[in-house]
């Protein structure tokens, strides 16, 4: 009855795409969860953003092999996401806060390692490494029922990391974690990325996604509304020019020059030393502005975008999607 034991295939994280969705649709009876998704996730940190009901959890469960697509194909490391071989490469940290409360954190992580097909000694060793990685070594012998929300998040992460997956999928990992804990978890994700792995983080805490994710996926109504780096997505939003605040001792002269540029849609003077601009094609604008201030020796003391954050982009995309 038992399948032959197999050597673990090498991590494919460095070989480009870790996970792919091709024309994936998922229905729950008459309700559509995700609709005709095409997506490739590679190494690095990818943020998954969207309002409730957007299809984020369905997408995550499809990738984790917990759901079968109604149409299309989900592959992880080239294998069907629902297969055992694909699950070797996925570490899933759900938002569900359910454990066997009588278990200790250490026992829980070890059990999850055993479920992954590790021998007793391997499971023990890997559990200790994963616990150390999430900073829970000293507290892992306590029963889960006595853990705080932040400690539970860490234990959930440890169980996801225990088999050294190529891709870590985390659903709302920063919920209920204090600021220090959040910083540590974000460092953990970055460390995972630095080892050439992929991290998919679903979160509602948008300003932290700014700092964390290199690439974001905006979802709404079961579809991917936009994906790419925040800057790329921001540049695609033609109807929402980028707002830039600029501070200079020569504000009036500079504003008079900039208003003639075709990428500058409008300028508003705030005071003698500060004005704000509405800019199309931000990349081209910033390149030209840099060259210009250097060539003209103009003193610029501050330059910042005011609506290029994930939150602002999210709002623009959602309002566009609502009108569509």
């Amino acid at each position: 009855m038992s399948a032959p034991e197999s050597p673990r295939t090498a991590s494919p994280a460095t070989a480009g795409a870790v996970a792919e969705l091709r024309s994936v649709t998922k229905w729950y009876g008459p309700v559509i969860g995700v609709n005709d998704l095409d997506l490739t996730i590679g190494p690095g940190i990818t943020g998954l953003l969207g309002p409730n009901g957007a299809g984020k959890t369905t997408l995550i469960k499809l990738l984790a092999g917990l759901l079968h697509p109604s149409l299309g194909k989900v592959t992880v490391s080239g294998r069907s996401a629902a297969s055992s071989a694909a699950k070797e490469h996925i570490g899933y940290c759900p938002d569900v806060d359910a454990f066997y409360e009588e278990m200790s954190g250490r026992r829980f992580v070890r059990t999850m390692a055993r479920l992954h097909g590790m021998s007793k000694s391997e499971a023990k060793e890997r559990a200790e490494i994963a616990l150390a990685e999430v900073g829970m070594t000293d507290r892992a012998d306590r029963r889960l029922r006595g853990y705080s929300k932040g400690m539970r998040q860490r234990i959930k992460l440890a169980q996801a990391l225990v088999h050294d997956p190529a891709m870590l999928i985390v659903d709302e990992p920063l919920n209920g974690v204090d600021p220090v804990g959040r910083r540590e978890l974000m460092e953990l994700f970055r460390g995972f990325r630095d080892r050439g792995k992929a991290v998919l983080v679903s979160s509602h805490i948008l300003h932290e996604m700014d700092a964390l994710a290199e690439r974001v996926i905006f979802m709404g109504r079961g579809r991917i509304l936009a994906s790419g780096t925040l800057a790329e997505i921001r540049e695609m939003l033609d109807e929402h020019p980028l707002h830039v605040r600029l501070r200079s001792s020569q504000a009036r002269e500079l504003a008079a020059q900039l208003i003639r540029w075709e990428d500058v849609k409008g300028i508003e003077l705030r005071d003698e030393e500060e004005f704000s601009l509405e800019v199309r094609r931000p990349d081209a604008f910033f390149q030209r502005l840099g060259d210009f201030v250097v060539a003209e020796s103009i003193d610029v003391s501050a330059l910042e975008t005011t609506d290029a954050s994930a939150e602002a982009v999210f709002d623009y995309i959602m309002s566009s999607a609502a009108r569509a």
Binding site: A3, S6, R8, A10, G117, E187, R195
Partner: peptide
Amino acid sequence: MPAELAGYREWSGKTRSPWRASWSI
């Protein structure tokens, strides 16, 4: 704790049959 301090090293061990994992349950 950073992975390096945790003594992190990638796991390349053998996974056993899923049927044996049922014993964990």
